[in-house]
Design a protein around this nucleic acid. Sequence first.
DNA 1: GTAAGTGCAAAGGATTTGCAGGCGA
DNA 2: TCGCCTGCAAATCCTTTGCACTTAC
Lengths: 154, 154
Amino acid sequence: MEQRIERIKKQLHSQSYKLTPQREATVRVLLEHEEDHLSAEDVYLLVKEKSPEIGLATVYRTLELLTELKVVDKINFGDGVSRYDLRQEGATHFHHHLVCIECGSVDEIQEDLLGEVEKTVEKRWEFKIKDHRLTFHGICKQCNQKENETEEKV
Amino acid sequence: MEQRIERIKKQLHSQSYKLTPQREATVRVLLEHEEDHLSAEDVYLLVKEKSPEIGLATVYRTLELLTELKVVDKINFGDGVSRYDLRQEGATHFHHHLVCIECGSVDEIQEDLLGEVEKTVEKRWEFKIKDHRLTFHGICKQCNQKENETEEKV
DNA sequence: GTAAGTGCAAAGGATTTGCAGGCGA
DNA sequence: TCGCCTGCAAATCCTTTGCACTTAC
């Protein structure tokens, strides 16, 4: 935790940004909720618990800054709000998501499954890939099991 | 064109929706701009050219309806507006996109490149895939060429 | 001292909603 | 006729911005 904060601090400094108390509080919330996909409002409420004087605009500004530095990725699952997802340390590519259309849960896939696909795209479309977004919509393990149980009863 | 409208009409009727003149005008605009990725506002302005009395809310309501029927897909490239993309006739999967971070152009990939990847995901994560979203961010052919020319001059 | 960073409130932009009127089956 | 559909305007929601104040170096 402290190491990662330290590293983010250096990253900020390298571009002449400061790690202010508000920014640190925001980063800590992101680190503590790495598995979740928090919206700006979510982050704001969580930061507020420990630092009640913070403003929503500051959270937005911090998240924008972190997105620019590629510390977080801004994602959109089509529900009207942007969500922010911490990048894995050293990850060159954005991880993938599994969105369940039954229960709304979002799981992450850290593995890079697109190696071959990207080679094909770069060659065939002469497109230099810098990043990608891949989301699968479907039914998660848990909901699948529930459905099967229901069917058995019928 | 007329055939596709006819088919969409049937699809609406099968769910007891009507193909009103406003809805038809909206669908026509979508068909005429299949290659583009129009926002609701874009669609509204184009429909207005031929049917000036239409309201923006109606366009939003129509696009929502078409999304529900899977006639169009609602996509989001992170620029704050939703865009609407006609599904290929009979396509079971959503096509992919190449977004250029230099010039903002959006190209489409109709081929399904994810066959193998999806098999892996379904098996390994026990997730039943219903649809996917895949977008590559990078530099398009045209911008690549421009960049190379500039380098040669330097 | 100065520039970057902050909080608040107001503004902005996209989308949705309430409602009265219209229209097609 | 009845209920779906529409247009308009107002409302709502998320996000950004202006501004005066604070803070760190």
